Amino acid sequence: MNFKNGIFILSVIVMIVIGLASCNMKPTPGKTESDVAAVKPDSAKNEFRPGIVKDANGNMTERRDVTLGPDSKVRTRNEYHYTYDSLNNRTSEQIWCKSPDGTPVSRTYNTFIYSDGLLRQSTLIGYDANDKENSWLQNRYEYNSKRQQTEVTLYNKKGNRRSTTLRIYNDKGNLWKEVMIEYDVNGREKNRSGLEFSDRGAIVGEF
Results as ranks from 00 to 15, higher is better:
Gly173Pro: 03
Gly6Val: 08
Val39Phe: 00
Leu154Asp: 03
Ser115Glu: 15
Ile113Asn: 14
Ile113Gln: 14
Val36Ala: 09
Ile113Lys: 15
Phe3Ile: 09
Ala129Phe: 00
Asp171Lys: 06
Tyr155Glu: 09
Arg200Ile: 02
Asp131Tyr: 13
Tyr80Met: 11
Ser198His: 08
Asn144Trp: 11
Ser163Tyr: 03
Leu175Tyr: 03
Thr164His: 01
Lys172His: 11
Asn78Glu: 14
Leu137Val: 08
Thr165Lys: 06
Trp136Pro: 00
Val17Glu: 08
Ser11Lys: 13
Lys40Pro: 01
Lys98Tyr: 01
Leu124Phe: 12
Tyr80Cys: 02
Asn5Leu: 06
Asn130Gly: 13
Arg90Val: 12
Asp171Phe: 02
Val36Gln: 05
Gly30Leu: 10
Tyr141His: 12
Ser72Ala: 13
Val36Lys: 06
Phe197Asn: 00
Phe207Pro: 04
Pro100Leu: 10
Thr32Tyr: 01
Tyr109Thr: 01
Val39Ile: 15
Ala37Val: 05
Val66Gln: 04
Gly201Val: 08
Asn24Gln: 15
Asn78Met: 11
Gly102Trp: 04
Gly173Ile: 05
Gly102Ala: 08
Arg188Met: 08
Gln138Trp: 00
Ile95Met: 09
Lys54Asp: 03
Lys40Leu: 09
Cys23Gln: 11
Ile13Gly: 02
Leu124Ser: 12
Lys98Phe: 00
Phe3Met: 07
Phe112Ser: 04
Ile16Glu: 12
Val53Gly: 03
Asn130Thr: 14
Arg77Gln: 11
Glu47Met: 10
Lys26Tyr: 10
Asn156Thr: 04
Tyr141Ala: 12
Ile168Ser: 08
Pro27Ser: 11
Ala38Val: 06
Trp96Gly: 01
Ile13Gln: 10
Leu118His: 05
Thr103Glu: 04
Arg188Phe: 08
Tyr84His: 09
Ala44Arg: 09
Asn191Phe: 13
Ile95Trp: 09
Arg107Cys: 02
Asn156Cys: 07
Val152Met: 11
Asp199Pro: 04
Asn191His: 13
Lys40Phe: 01
Gln148Ser: 10
Thr32Cys: 05
Cys23Ile: 13
Asn89Trp: 02
Arg188Gly: 07
Tyr82Glu: 14
Thr61Trp: 00
Val17Gln: 09
Phe8His: 10
Tyr169Trp: 03
Arg188Trp: 03
Lys157Ile: 03
Ala56Trp: 06
Thr76Cys: 02
Lys172Ile: 01
Ala21Met: 15
Lys45Gln: 12
Trp96Asn: 01
Val66Gly: 02
Tyr80Val: 14
Gln121Glu: 15
Thr164Ala: 06
Gly173Asn: 08
Tyr80Lys: 09
Asp199Gly: 06
Asn174Trp: 00
Pro41Phe: 10
